[in-house]
Amino acid sequence: MKDLLKQKRLRHALILLFTLIIFTLPFLITNNYYLSVLVIIGIHTIVVVGLCLLMGYAGQISLGHAAFYGLGAYTSGILTSTYNVSPWLALLAGAVGTGIIAYLIGIPIFRLKEHYLALATLGFGLIIHVILMEEVELTGGPSGLSKGIPYLSIGSLVLNNDFKFYFLVWILALLALILANNVVHSRIGRALRSIHGSEFAAQSLGVDTGRHKLQVFALSAVYASVAGSLYAHYITFISPSPFGLMTSIQFVVMAVVGGLASIWGPIFGVSVITIMAESLKEFMPLLIPQAGGEYEIVVYGIILVVIMIFMPDGLTATLVKAYEGWRYRKERANETP
């Protein structure tokens, strides 16, 4: 019991420390490019936290999360630029709308198992992408929304640079993490873990597996939608290309690299992949001058395969295990002089 309390205190201390680091970083980093990378990491973290809830706790893969991300971005973009709706209202509308769409599409999708489920989410993602490309009057088609998307503002404070936007993104990312953490440690969280263990056993113990999975699916879609809205107001221009299958796969890669069953997993996975992708953009042209802009997908693929084969629980879990093993050996060494 004492140990458990100690663990809980340690966890809270870690979260506090992390929060402190996150909010002092922008004062130390003066380079705008590094700051923008951190903003993107924050936005991606929000999506991946939701995806980890779905994959790690409900055991369901989604290859269509870029679609929810895109729905959020486009709802915000279209409502604010074409219809002059307030950005916050648009963000909310996107989140609610996407949540409802996810819930409705989830009803038939979650009747499916494993491979079929993966394929159905993938199909849904592709259909949304095709719609974004083809509904030119509404979305601007492949060339994107031509009208400018306004910046977000709080009162009279316009979030028009990386520094200001950073705080908003990371406050929301931390809220997303805390909310996810609460879900995990609630009754629903236990029910979800039981689904991951054995859906049949959970069902026979009276867990309404279908409803819980739907709720988590909708929640993760809402996360993605909010992140998409933030992205739209950060970049202030959107086109369909960042919301395609590659992005969906990238989110899955981030989730599995970080590891699914820990709240630190998403932050870790997103940071590793985003920083790696950015540094590849810097260094690859030096190594292979003729390589185009998409070579990083090779590295994505290889990392995904290697991690899945050798550390199926993700990097975080592997590191934690290594640390615990090291501590255990050290204690053993201390005990036997």
């Binding site: 491979h115 899955v252 997908i297 090779v298 693929g301 995904l304 395969v305 899945m308 084969i309």
Partner: peptide, 19 residues
Amino acid sequence: ASPLTLVIITIGLSTAIKG
């Protein structure tokens, strides 16, 4: 590995081959 893991591995393979 679990089916989910294997699916992710083949997705990774596909990305790597394409790259």
